[in-house]
Amino acid sequence: MSWITARRRHRASGYAVVLLGLAAIAVMYASVTGQGSQAAASAPSVSGQSIAEGKFLFSQDCSSCHGLEAQGTSLAPSLIGAGAAAVDFQMSTGRMPAKEPGAEMDRRPDVFSQKQIYEIASYIGSLGGGPAIPDAAQVSSSGANVGLGQELFAANCAACHSIDGAGGALTYGKYAPALSQATPTQIYEAMQTGPEAMPVFDDGAVTPSEKRDIIAYVTGTRSEPNPGGFSLGRIGPVTEGIVAWIGGIGLLVLAAMWITAKRREEA
């Protein structure tokens, strides 16, 4: 502390205290939540032409892992019956085509055009049904019951994705991603197809209208402003504790040093 003792009576020390204080507050700026795009896609029209295009694209980009007839290999599962929704989800979130097998495929920028994705999806859909890509009305939040969506999300999704959608760790290096980017269509498709460690929530478990409620809750939560100030990342008491120590105790210790440093002139 002797360096402080030496300098605290310096003329600039008051400013230094204020600056350090501001720096401490800056920590609170550190975490800002991202906002996702909310564009809802319209379902593709399925024609023989697009299925053929899709089969061609699939043989080029996907067959090395999933097999020429999408029958699956030792590297990747069969896609027969996986459904168009699964392809649209996996490709539009950039998870497929996979780069290398890891603990979990991360969300990445998609590399294919929406048209190409629809073509491959049509092809896979033609192989044996499975969930179809939802249309705009199925994923629309208008008129949805957000309150019910909250209850459904708390009961079905919060255990993995956390109640405010911040995401969370699962075992063995897996994780449930933050729901800050998924589009309404992707949220719907995720429920329909249950990617990786996520369970499938088919229409029997969560009805189509409940799916809209959940979508409305997820998209509404992330775009909701924070009436109390900076969100601190919306990850709960951990960041609050850090801020209490750095911003609270930290600032006050500086203030205490400053106050006690101004010794009165010795008589």
Partner: peptide, 13 residues
């Protein structure tokens, strides 16, 4: 709600 739980549940520090 006793049937729900959230990931990332923590107490105060």
């Amino acid at each position: 709600n006793p049937v729900s739980i959230s990931a990332g549940s923590q107490p105060d520090f």
